[in-house]
Amino acid sequence: MTRYIIRRTLAALVVVWAVGTLVFFALRAVPGDPISAMLADVDPSMAEQLRQKFGLDKPVYVQYGLWMLRTLQGDLGNSIYGSNVAVSRIIAEALPRTLSLAALSLVISLSIALVAGIVSAIRRNSLLDHSMTFLAFLGLSMPDFWLGILLIIVFAVKLGWLPAIGYKPLSDGLWPWFSHLILPAVAAGTPFSAIIARMTRSAMLEVLNSEYIKVARAKGLHERTVILVHGLKNALIPVVTVMGIAFALLMSGTVIVENVFAIKGLGRVLIQGILNRDYPVVQGAILVVSMVFVFSNLLVDILYTVIDPRIRYET
């Protein structure tokens, strides 16, 4: 198991390195650099100076070597646009916001999905089951940014219950943190909920039909024990198999939803970087976003072995 984790961690790092390298060279292969975009070719001598300052005048392979060396030391360069801040600092400020949002979103959408899936399975083919099927379809078809907008209109503008945009860290208190994050968390987690709820429903139906559930009922166990202890525990295994895909959707949801709710997380940093053609910021953000994806995927795979001890990854 340890060897498996080490091997997978190395493979994950290789993926992140490959993405970083591809983006590095592709950015330089595409015509037009950020300096000319910024100055619009008004002042050639100043542009030359700036290129020297940011090392853009050196040959590409030298730039790549330097970039690799600095990245390994945790130095992602400075933002070209505006205030010249260190990219690593921008990302260090953004990362906790994104992780907060993803964590809350995961907790909320997982609980909703499990309850919905179990209820659908128990009341199979009822009106409730059919409406949940439809809601799941809707959740997968609705753009997450639109859902975010609708939530703002209803809960912030019309009802005035929650703040529309922004972010407050947990250190400001639980309610300010939660009230700012609940709407984006729901918006980002809806496709996740839809997939997990569908999977829970079909896994639950399969399990409830099995012999050991009949035995449990025959023993006279309380129905709640039968479903939650004997049923859910076994139904969770197939659910975890789609967890990776579903969680990736949730994470990509946070990238776009952060831009709806003006939360300065990784997704907003990345998009602002692209809009400003701020290469160091874009490169740094892509590197860290990729890392979050690859390692969360790894975590899901490890979780899989914890939930189902029958699965053993060899070496």
């Binding site: 993405v19 595409v30 994470m251 990238v255 692209i274 990729s290």
Partner: peptide
């Protein structure tokens, strides 16, 4: 496989980052 590690939307964002808007 490299692309497979990420959702399609994220790949599209990466590519727009490279090619421009």
């Amino acid at each position: 496989d490299l692309q497979w590690a990420f959702p399609n939307f994220i790949i599209a964002v990466y590519l727009v980052a490279v090619f421009g808007t």
